[in-house]
Design a protein around this nucleic acid. Sequence first.
RNA 1: GACCCCUUCGUCUAGUGGCCUAGGACUCCAGGUUUUCAUCCUGGCAACACGGGUUCGAAACCCGUAGGGGUCGCCA
Length: 435
Amino acid sequence: MKVRTRFAPSPTGHVHIGNMRAAIYNWLFARHHGGEFLLRVEDTDRERSTPEAIRTLLAAMEWLGLDFDGEALYQSTRQAAHVAAAETLLAKGHAYKEDKGGTGQGECIVFKMPGTDVSFEDGIKGTLSKAADDMQDFVIVRSNGTPVFHLANVLDDIEQRVTHVIRGDDHVENTYRHIALYQALGADVPQFAHLPMIVNAQGKPYSKRDGDAFVGDFREKGFLPEALFNYLALLGWSPGDDREVMAREEMVAAFDLARCQSSPAQVDLRKLTWMNGEYMLKLPVEEFESICFGALDQAGIGAEPEYARRVFALVRERVKTVADVVPMVACFFTEDFGFDEKAVAKKLQKEGVAGILGQVGELLRVLPAFDAADIDQALHRFVEQSGLGFGAVMPPMRIAVSGQQSGPDLAPILAVLGRERVLARIDRAVERFLV
RNA sequence: GACCCCUUCGUCUAGUGGCCUAGGACUCCAGGUUUUCAUCCUGGCAACACGGGUUCGAAACCCGUAGGGGUCGCCA
């Protein structure tokens, strides 16, 4: 039988990172088995399920490369079928009508649990079971005639012929009810697998206040989709060997639910950042450049392409996230770059620095060719002849021309900046910080 | 509170009874390369929650304890 998994989010305008990880696991599982990965939009909450929210959802999936098979099924189009199924359940004695809780709102349809213990083989957690006494009947159609999640979810999974339901741990309790529903409906019960939750740096469940709870947040922070995908895939799953940075096909080939963790995983932004850096490094040069141009553009910084490419080459190996780009290259495009105040205080505002900068400036002024090799040579000679040591010369120079104490090699920075700007910046730094 | 689930370095994990003096990765620290910063290289710190069993042998199996999590809606 062909494997079919699904991602069934309710569009709320944000895509929660935990949900997205569930989507990734469903996708990986389906692709591994040569099956289908389906999308079902559970848009029954008309208030929140706006076209805009649905667009956000689709965009997040596309960004992460989660392509789904066939057409997306919109749950809102299935209401009549859901209610009809509830009527059948009613007719067969699997459900009854009641004014539950005596609310006076009228009668709703309640599903009658079979009164037997339920157990199932979870793809990740093993055998799970629940005693009949611990399960209660539940509402499947509200008194206003609308179907409840449990009914709709199960019916749609049947409709989409889903074979494997891979979802968050928070659905374990629902599964017992859902299985009873499948059986009453006379449908095959799919395989279930429950993914452990992912928690924040404090070890607590993610909430909106954590900030980094949504896919969009990661995108804004400059993470690459492939890196996020890889990181999330490894949060709760491992291929069983020491591989970590893996190509997507590699993950597809190695994916196995049995190798998934059954305990919660904590997100570690530092490791994600490291992994993102690995992916940045792997990017083809043109792609890296285009990302840089995009970042510059967004920051409202204009750039002459050829010059910009020389700058990008300088920062290529040190950029960990897309968000690193602008702060790191800004000083190449504007005179209005910021100074790292700590660095200024510690390395620039020191006895004798004004004199050193003056001497280096003079040296550079008379340098015949202003290219990286010659500048480097001149700098070295100066350090040697003055007996000052590199630490006394390079850091102040770097801060004077770039505002930062770290960055690409100094000589190339100066070369790319050009003689005029370098000299002007040295003067300005002396005037501003050392007089 | 009831029911269910989980527990290996700070974090993500390997480990399916002897290969474990518990391996890898991130972070951190030290040294080296770069006579600056970063990169890179080498090394280091660091864990089987606890207590009982079972076994010739337990990180692995069983039972308890503690801690954490989930669920208990006419939400999804």
